[in-house]
């Protein structure tokens, strides 16, 4: 269980990392938390010639609120987001999602940026970031850009990042008005990749009607997907049982699951529907009384 030999670079700044990415091109591979990459290297299905270890770049750590958004550094560990007390009220989907990722050992090392860039369709962060309408901030030789999460995931293991670009942070808009969220996941065993999982975020306007709806689908397609039809069905309506049932039935329509050892496509679609209804009911209960009109 030893990887192939590789060259190791440990840049101390984002600029240096970007320069190394440009220098090595196809041969270079960024090492973030390493919780997917290193096992693949040890199994020798991945054999990058150069590892560019970004663990030493302090600028990629931590989070802060700027201009109505939460900016989370790419190298923030899952465990930090799981335990961050100051994010719990305003951005609960972070801890709700983080606690479902693999096991505590992996959560201590794995990072939100690494997970997103790895672009595994079973990534829990992928679905959560879709629900929150996040943007990925990248840095390349040409400077920085913000990539909406819906454009970020291109295909399994493939993102919109160029070969010489580094993901440096994710930006999540602060909810306007009372908001609640849920992360629902079904696993074969604790810590497993999902059979199916769903991230749901809802905010209400002053009128008590849904003003923001975000539903991200995990492990049911080549990339994390958005349940756009269900979202649209919720917007502008109060979270009544009728609205919940209607919207949850629309969630499977945007999923593209495959038949595999975890279950049939039909099964996964139905689990998504059940999860959507349960999440929305919970959210409705949580938000009850938080706005004047109901």
């Amino acid at each position: 269980m030893f990887p192939n030999a590789f060259k190791y670079e440990a840049p101390a700044s984002v600029d240096e990392a970007v320069r190394l990415l440009a220098e090595y091109g196809y041969d270079g591979k960024v090492l973030a938390g390493g919780q997917s990459l290193l096992p693949m290297m040890k199994l020798r299905v991945a054999a990058p010639a150069v590892l560019i270890d970004i663990n030493g770049i302090d600028a990629l750590q931590g989070w802060r609120e700027v201009d109505g958004k939460l900016r989370v550094g790419a190298m923030t560990r899952h465990a930090e987001l799981e335990h961050a007390a100051e994010l719990r009220d305003k951005y609960p989907l972070f801890f709700q999602t983080a606690r479902w990722i693999a096991d505590p050992l992996i959560r201590n090392r794995g990072t939100i940026g690494g997970s997103l860039v790895h672009a595994d369709p079973g990534s829990d962060w992928g679905a959560a970031m879709i629900a929150l309408r996040a943007e990925v901030e990248s840095r390349g030789p040409q400077g920085s850009r913000l990539i909406p999460v819906d454009e970020f995931f291109v295909d399994t293991f493939a993102t919109a990042l160029n070969e010489d670009e580094l993901a440096v942070a994710v930006h999540v808009p602060s909810p306007k008005g009372p908001a609640a969220s849920r992360y629902m996941k079904l696993e074969r065993r604790a810590g497993d990749f999902a059979i199916a999982a769903l991230a749901v975020h809802v905010a209400l306007g002053n009128d008590g009607r849904v003003s923001e709806a975000g539903i991200g689908i995990c492990a049911c397609g080549p990339i994390p997907l958005r349940a756009a039809k269900a979202e649209a069905a919720l917007i502008g309506r109060p979270l009544t049982e009728e609205a919940i049932v209607e919207a949850s039935k629309l969630v499977p329509e945007d999923a593209e699951p495959a038949d595999d050892l975890r279950g049939s496509a039909e099964y996964k679609r139905d689990v998504l529907r059940v999860f959507a209804a349960r999440a929305l009911r919970d959210i409705a209960k949580e938000l009850q009384g938080k706005v004047g009109v109901q």
């Binding site: 079904l186 074969r188 059979i195 975890r262 279950g263 049939s264 099964y267 139905d270 689990v271």
Partner: peptide, 8 residues
Amino acid sequence: IYPWKVWK
């Protein structure tokens, strides 16, 4: 007994 078998 995976969940999908029971669901089916």
